[in-house]
């Protein structure tokens, strides 16, 4: 094949196009990516809001329909559960007081502690579709990079990593790029909380001598100053030695369902108490 023919061949074209696109993905220039996403999610934010509203409506309806078939079984299960819970209730009264003390100690009374901004999820993606979400609040509403995103009573779900005029991107704590300081409630064992491919959370760099057991609750340590201390990340579910056996690491189970988040709160600043 002559050189001109080669330059017009399908194979030559696909090699060039694939190399450029794959090279750009490899390079991953953050300012360019952020700018392009900013333009897209600013211009199409209203459309995304409508689409996401439809999606949440559809999801609720799907869950409702799938639950109809389970009603009878669910009813029987709940009757048994009710008997068991009545017995447990007495014991829980004592634990409630203890829990209240801990909440005050680690500062989980979140609404009194922080000035917060509510936001709604309008898009999701990255890392298997659940590494990031786009929310409907941006720089125009005072959102800045590094704000912590929480749900419920102070459960940390992520950190704002890109801000656009009318929207912002939140990187979940399950994201591979996420890393922040953690500490266990009670024993005070410190470690690094890292995301695991968008699928889970790991707790690493825990010293062998430090106490760590299943069920321990891990909260943010506040190291670095970006994420406030005392936000619940989750509870320790399994513990193992690190590869070099110098440290221990654990899996953390978050109480938040990252695949079903619709509303979350951004922490603007800590209130002076």
């Amino acid at each position: 094949m002559n050189p001109q023919g080669l330059s017009h061949s399908k194979f030559f074209r696909i090699v060039i196009v694939f190399s450029i696109l794959f090279g750009f993905a490899w390079w991953n220039p953050a300012p360019v990516d952020s700018f392009l996403r900013g333009v897209f999610h600013t211009v199409f934010s209203p459309v995304e809001k409508v689409f996401s509203g439809v999606a949440f409506g559809f999801r609720d309806m799907r869950e409702f329909i799938s639950s109809i078939g389970n009603l009878k079984r669910e009813n029987e299960r709940l009757s048994e559960e009710n008997v068991r819970l009545l017995a447990e209730n007495a014991g829980l009264a004592f634990l409630r007081d203890e829990n209240e003390t801990i909440r005050k100690t680690v500062g989980l009374d979140i609404r009194k502690r922080f000035d917060m901004l509510s936001a709604e999820v309008i898009a999701a993606g990255g890392e298997g579709g659940h590494g990031f979400v786009v929310i409907d609040r941006g720089s125009m509403q005072g959102v800045v990079t590094g704000m912590s995103a929480v749900v419920g009573e102070g459960v940390l779900v992520g950190v704002v990593d890109e801000v656009y005029p009318a929207s912002a991107r939140v990187a979940f704590v399950t994201n591979s790029e996420s890393a922040l300081g953690g500490v266990t409630v009670g024993s005070g064992t410190k470690g690094i909380v890292r995301g695991d491919r968008g699928l889970g959370i790991s707790y690493s760099m825990v010293l062998q001598a430090d106490p760590l057991s299943q069920g321990d609750r891990v909260v943010t340590s506040g190291a670095g100053g970006t994420v406030p201390s005392g936000l619940l990340i989750g509870s320790v579910s399994s513990i193992r030695d690190s590869g070099d056996r110098l440290f221990r690491e654990a899996s953390i189970l978050s109480p938040a369902d990252f695949g079903k988040l619709r509303f979350l709160y951004l922490i603007r600043k800590e209130q002076s108490l």
């Binding site: 450029i20 794959f22 991953n28 199409f44 993606g125 590494g131």
Partner: peptide, 8 residues
């Protein structure tokens, strides 16, 4: 761009 992955 829309799905927040690596562009390209």
């Amino acid at each position: 761009i829309a799905t927040l992955g690596r562009i390209g």
